[in-house]
Amino acid sequence: MDALVTTQWLASELGASDLRIVDATYLDAAGGRDASAEYEQAHIPGAVFMNLGELRDTDTDLPMMLPSAEKFASRMQSLGLGDGSRIVLYDTSPWHTAARAWWMLRHFGAHDVAILDGGLTKWRAEGRETAAGKEQLRHRHFTVWAGAEGVRTLDQMQRNLSSGGEQVLDARSAARFTGEEPDPRPATHAGHIPGSKNLPYTELFEADGTWKRGEALRQAFAAASVDLDRPIVTTCGSGITAATLLFGLHLLGKDGALYDGSWSEWGASRDTHKAMGAA
């Protein structure tokens, strides 16, 4: 299974015993949409709903930190996702949150994980069947494994300021990156990590919401002055769209790490603000 699959491919695979489809839409409640309610109203047949808003470390004030391996495995098992599953993710979020689910699944040991190109929007535009209500799948064992190599901490990001060992790539909008637009989180400074580069995650998509591929995708990274042959760590506001950049890198055959605390951690820290010279 490719990392990015088409609606036509998925339609031909519906009903396969090892196929698991997941709606990984995450939305800000302030935007007036309810991801769970929208899933129950219409989803791809057989799809279960992954609640990314709950699938996080709830012992921290940071918004979207990785949960424990045990919590993640338990949630996946309850969704019927487990060993031997081919997992296809989609979303209807403006932040393309299927990429966050993709990154988390791979981080915790899932091997066969893909994203549906164009998501539910493309699926419905093509007149394909949808289902309503909730899907019930039997529990399936999920063998969890988690290493630390694909995740960066605040301390590691601070050390990288002097070492410069990794390029830091920020997925937020240009206005958020420059500080022209204030951060929406209370007591969080505007701006960006010193030395980082800006590639708004929206630049990785075509006008119809499908992913750029090949040279078009490569040019998006080149336009942000990213050297694809050097190590890269991605960041954003809360760790969600940073995963979108990682998926884009994956499509180009490259891997990177994700700063999970992202700007919600860096921008609220007194130490980092001091190090930035109050910039």
Rank of each mutant, 00 (worst) to 15 (best):
Ile240Gly: 03
Ala47Trp: 00
Leu246Asn: 06
Ala268Arg: 15
Ala16Asp: 06
Ser238Phe: 01
Leu62Gln: 12
Ala148Trp: 15
Pro45Asn: 11
Phe108Trp: 14
Ile115Ala: 05
Phe177Ser: 01
Asp208Phe: 08
Gly267Ala: 01
Glu135Tyr: 02
Leu66Ala: 13
Ala243Arg: 01
Thr188Met: 13
His107Gln: 14
Lys212Leu: 11
Pro182Gln: 06
Ser269Gly: 03
Asp57Met: 08
Ile44His: 11
Arg140Lys: 15
Ala29His: 10
Ala223Glu: 15
Val144Met: 07
His250Cys: 06
Ser78Met: 09
Thr92His: 10
His250Ala: 14
Pro200Asp: 04
Gly267Glu: 05
Leu258Thr: 00
Lys71Glu: 07
Cys236Gln: 11
Thr60Glu: 11
His96Phe: 15
Trp95Arg: 15
Ala37Ile: 04
Ala146Ile: 05
Arg100Asp: 01
Gly195His: 13
Gln156Thr: 08
Cys236Ala: 07
Ser262Trp: 11
Ala69Thr: 08
Arg100Cys: 03
Asp59Lys: 15
Thr7Gln: 14
Phe49Cys: 00
Leu199Tyr: 01
Gln136Asn: 15
Gly214Ala: 04
Lys122Glu: 13
Gly84Gln: 04
Glu13Pro: 02
Ser163Leu: 09
Phe142Glu: 07
Gly179Leu: 00
Thr235Ala: 07
Glu38Tyr: 08
Pro67His: 06
Glu126Asn: 13
Asn160Pro: 04
Ala131Thr: 07
Gly84Glu: 05
Gly80Trp: 02
Ala16Ile: 01
Ser74His: 11
Thr241Asn: 03
Gln136Asp: 14
His96Leu: 05
Gly239Met: 00
Tyr39Phe: 14
Glu129Cys: 05
Gly31Asn: 12
Ala110Ile: 13
Ile44Thr: 03
Ser36Pro: 06
Ser238Pro: 06
Glu215Asn: 05
Arg140Trp: 10
Gln167Pro: 05
His43Gly: 02
Val22Tyr: 05
Glu206Pro: 06
Asp59Tyr: 15
Gly195Arg: 05
Gly150Val: 01
Glu54Met: 09
Ala207Trp: 12
Asp61Arg: 10
Val233Asn: 05
Gly253Glu: 10
Trp123Thr: 01
Val144Gln: 10
Phe221Arg: 06
Asp227Tyr: 02
Asp2Glu: 14
Lys254Thr: 08
Ala24Gly: 14
Arg20Met: 12
Ala174His: 12
Gly46Val: 02
Gly119Cys: 04
Asp83Tyr: 08
Leu204Gln: 09
Ser162Glu: 15
Glu265Gly: 03
Ala30Thr: 12
Thr25Ile: 03
Asp208Trp: 12
Asp229Pro: 08
Lys212Glu: 09
Ala243Gly: 03
Leu161Ala: 13
Leu246Arg: 08
Leu79Phe: 13
Phe108Val: 00
Leu27Asp: 02
His273Leu: 13
